[in-house]
Design a protein around this nucleic acid. Sequence first.
DNA 1: TTTAAATTTTAGACTAGTCTAAAATAAATT
DNA 2: AATTTATTTTAGACTAGTCTAAAATTTAAA
Lengths: 223, 223
Amino acid sequence: MHTETEENYLKVIYHLSVKSSDPVNTSSIAGSLSTTSASVTDMLKKLSEKNLIAYERYKGVRITKKGEKVALSIIRKHRLWEVFLTKVLKFGWEEVHTMAEELEHVSSDELISRMDSFLGYPEVDPHGDPIPDQQGKIQHTSNSTLSEGNLHQRFVISGVNDHSTAFLQYLNRSGLKPGITVQITEIQDFDQSMEIKIQNKQKQYISHEVSRNLLVTPYGKTS
Amino acid sequence: MHTETEENYLKVIYHLSVKSSDPVNTSSIAGSLSTTSASVTDMLKKLSEKNLIAYERYKGVRITKKGEKVALSIIRKHRLWEVFLTKVLKFGWEEVHTMAEELEHVSSDELISRMDSFLGYPEVDPHGDPIPDQQGKIQHTSNSTLSEGNLHQRFVISGVNDHSTAFLQYLNRSGLKPGITVQITEIQDFDQSMEIKIQNKQKQYISHEVSRNLLVTPYGKTS
DNA sequence: TTTAAATTTTAGACTAGTCTAAAATAAATT
DNA sequence: AATTTATTTTAGACTAGTCTAAAATTTAAA
């Protein structure tokens, strides 16, 4: 249907669109795709020609309904493959991103539909990100971070903001992942670092950088 | 490592090489890949440059050890994915080829290694074709066809020569697939058509065209 | 064994995607 | 408001892979 490159551009434009209501600018796309602004401009013209994005020279880009549908179908595939890789093939959540980047471009819709059924229609991927349905409907997450929590409050980890391997490996070592309960036992005023009690584990100090990147829901509430 | 196109050329060259000891000619490659001889010639130069094939102008092509290793790794991936699609996602054996053509180019060796283990180290794919191991070692099949059989002999179907969807769908309707036992109950001299008794089924007439494309092993012998 | 037919290769051109360097435009600063 | 700075776009070129049409070479036939 679309080339792999087109799909990657749309995915990046979609992700950047969600972060802010401003139009997406050329250089941020170039940054996300590790390419040059010149290349991005060329591609924007092509995507615009196909009505996948709304593009005006020097004014940035907005994704169209049509483009969003394509992006969400790629994101759906990506996240379902991540579930498969962790749940079935027992990969760690920090290992699956690169493989899913390739698998998401395999075209068959019937394949991904059967995979969805085989996996039991999961709602989130191993990082807590929601999986769009076949129609491209996606449950947007609440987005509260552990850093916004108060002393003694308990939370259930629901996801991460930073998807880097380094961060995920750090979390692994501390036993932090979606589903785990944590309680804030201490907050340092001067640097916002905190001590937390991790479910079935020792207490541990974490930096503000870490708590800012941990998505949580209040303990007890079903998200 | 290699581009998808390179991998497809090597796969086709490998398959054609196995069929005969003569060097592979340009037009047969073009035919298999549905492209032009001119395009093939261009690509042969590139593959030769990389020592994946041995190529002399106007003299055809032989695959090198290095090229064969690449081809067998793609074939391994293709066949393991076919097993996954039929055994796990319950696709029919006539549906899986196209999907496997895409999945075989997903690069991760660790992925295919875990898939192999998850599937229980299968030796053949749904069509009875042997799956090369990680080192590229492959069990070459005996290649006797049902058409070579004599009256009253019993065989176990071990594979097919024709992998077309049409043929596989025909076999589906008759309950013919690898593992099934058949006995030759009648042979027509004038057109080599035969009547066969299919395990747990009615007797059925099949044309010479069909029996020529069914691979079999004598009943009782473990292949 | 010379000619005819088939196959293969070259030449030149096209598309998708990319790049660098220069030009155009927008945003920020004085 | 004028100028500097940053961003974006254009221009022109490159690679991988493809094509058509013409030239070269091999194979088959007379």
